[in-house]
């Protein structure tokens, strides 16, 4: 379980997050949605210790963010940032192999190599394995980065808008994979999504945010309503139900 209590964060005089208290249950897919600038990425970055805490407390199971050893957390939790800037000139296989670094610290064993192999297969990267990252398209690079996180094999995965750059086939494949990981391996996926349709279709829980505050949270069918779209997103789109599924106007 990830538990966040009394979390506030500001940049200079501008508050970005205000008094966030939140529990993300273990297992399942939790979608983080909200308008641009709501503080979703900041929340994710703070949980993943990418930025130092200013006030409040975050626990990932028994590990306290800010004091626990970074390398322990790396075996428990992984993050895919929104704009991952990988400067090094690496091949796809080399990049994915780094996902195992928290375990082997530079001397990969047979099990590590097998995990990397699997990750490459899962994301359908065999043909690209020896291509350099800077020769790939945006979607291919995104898949390579996802494969690296996959190889890291952590209980918790934080993904900041992973559908960027992915076409509809790759987007659906990724969401299905995440669901499967949550269901069969008990993984906890926290994912920032832009498209509420994806959140409604694939998430177990939805957490909404607006202007640095927490909005309604709960199961999609309970909270995704016309009122939510109006209050949180300030749009008059309607939620329609079709064959037991929810569809939001675009």
């Amino acid at each position: 379980m990830i538990s966040v209590s009394d979390l506030s964060y500001g940049y200079r005089d501008t508050p970005i997050l205000t008094d966030i208290t939140l529990e993300i249950p273990k297992g399942g897919v939790t979608a983080l949605i909200g308008p641009n600038g709501a503080g979703k990425s900041t929340l994710l970055s703070l949980i993943a210790r990418l930025m130092p805490l200013q006030s409040g407390r975050i626990m990932v199971d028994e590990l306290k963010i800010g004091t626990c050893a970074s390398t322990d957390l790396a075996q428990r939790l992984s993050i895919l940032p929104q704009v991952p800037e990988i400067a090094a000139r690496l091949t796809v296989a080399e990049l994915v192999a780094f996902g195992r670094y928290p375990y082997h610290k530079g001397r990969p064993g047979a099990e590590d190599l097998a995990q990397v192999e699997t990750a490459i297969e899962v994301f359908d990267l065999q043909a690209l394995a020896h291509r350099s990252l800077d020769t790939l398209s945006g979607g291919q690079r995104q898949r390579a980065l996802l494969a690296m996180i996959y190889a890291q094999d952590t209980d918790y995965m934080l993904l900041d808008e992973p559908l960027n750059n992915l076409d509809i086939a790759a987007s659906r494949a990724l969401m299905q994979l995440l669901r499967q990981m949550a269901e069969t391996h008990g993984r906890t996926i926290v994912i920032v999504l832009h498209d509420i349709n994806y959140a409604a279709a694939y998430a177990d829980h939805i957490v909404t945010m607006k202007e640095g505050h927490l909005g309604p949270c709960g199961a999609p069918r309970d909270i995704v309503t016309d009122a939510l779209l109006r209050d949180v997103f300030q749009t008059d789109a309607k939620v329609r139900r079709l064959d037991g599924k929810m569809l939001i106007d675009v």
Binding site: L50, S70, A74, I79, I86, A87, A88, K105, G106
Partner: peptide, 18 residues
């Protein structure tokens, strides 16, 4: 080996526990 990871960038390095 740590240098290899650092070369990936700040966020990736933190994610991998450095």
């Amino acid at each position: 080996h740590r240098l290899d990871v650092l070369a990936l960038g700040r966020e990736a390095a933190i994610n991998l526990g450095l």
